[in-house]
Design a protein around this nucleic acid. Sequence first.
DNA 1: CCCTTTTGACTAATCGGTTAGTAAGTACAT
DNA 2: ATGTACTTACTAACCGATTAGTCAAAAGGG
Lengths: 199, 199
Amino acid sequence: MADTPTEADPDPHEEIMRATYRALREHGYADLTIKRIADEYGKSTAAIHYHYDTKDDLLTAFLDFILDQFKDTVHEVETTDPEQRLELLLDKLLVDPRDHQDLLVAILEMRSQVPYNDQFRERFQQNDEYVQYLLRTVIDQGIKTGVFDDVDTDHVAQALMIIVDGARTRAVVFDEEDSLETARQTAAEYVTAALVADD
Amino acid sequence: MADTPTEADPDPHEEIMRATYRALREHGYADLTIKRIADEYGKSTAAIHYHYDTKDDLLTAFLDFILDQFKDTVHEVETTDPEQRLELLLDKLLVDPRDHQDLLVAILEMRSQVPYNDQFRERFQQNDEYVQYLLRTVIDQGIKTGVFDDVDTDHVAQALMIIVDGARTRAVVFDEEDSLETARQTAAEYVTAALVADD
DNA sequence: CCCTTTTGACTAATCGGTTAGTAAGTACAT
DNA sequence: ATGTACTTACTAACCGATTAGTCAAAAGGG
């Protein structure tokens, strides 16, 4: 009857995270209840509470779960050429998400809870710092090897973050995946205008 | 006992909208209930239901309420110089919000409900189209008068929208109003690089 | 007197969370 | 191998609180 009548499912925690994912996708954060998660899990609500004391604990664990997924998709690439490295990183931030639209929605929605949840804010800030660090590193490398102009690394990294966030937000709100494409182009234009040495 | 024991408050609808605003700011969308709105309103929940049949009706009306406020802050400026007009428009989209942080939070939060609420999506799309129209108009005027290069108006307008949305999102999530400043600078850099004729 | 507005009391449903108890598996000494 | 003890993973039933929404009655100004 179940959709995966195969082998035993290993970790209940992992299963609950996936169930939370599905429940969130279907009902949205505001209407996300233990009951709905339990339904997706295929077990009782008490089963959820056996593994997670409170709803808050579960949601915090879930945020860690999806941010880990995000980190995986952005994971660094093996290239020594700074320009190519930056291009690939921006691709991962702006092109890849099209295949992970659900992840994008989940992240956006939980992010909008930041003003009301300290746990969420802490984790999103840390995640943001990580991505910004990746960008800064690539830009710095480019400057050191003379491929990029000697610009304000912090400013450029932040500017690119703004473009990335804007594009991802718009890709979710208006499902025009178009905006990811436009953003990719905009980011490229910005990099060329602000970074690439033209002397 | 009330905080405004002055004159008679005219429109109950307006008062309820303001109460909703306060309740939303304090508890967040996910924990926004009729009871909390009624508490802010200073009346019973039944009083709310007298003016709005359902919670959904109220929230849709509230979205119209805040989007109208947004439109007011962006309202066009009287200038004929395209470059100055664009600068002022970007200022309104990126500098002004610092004095309306609450409005920004409310909009962001309701926007993240778009995937689950058709009414919301419709209104946000219309609002977005309006802002984009303003941008396109200014850019077109600049091109016509030769101040701007003959660029793809649609693309540039969309690129600026991405920057604006990204900045506003980041300004809410990380309270660094810094990001609005950075975005303002980034937008200016982008305009210079992509629009201003340099021949 | 009427009409708008508001209240208090209510309902059915759902909320997050607790409880006692069960079934299956593991560990280990005998 | 067998009995005992303990752990993991769960269920059914239930808890008090809260949810959105209803309705008859009452308040109160024109």
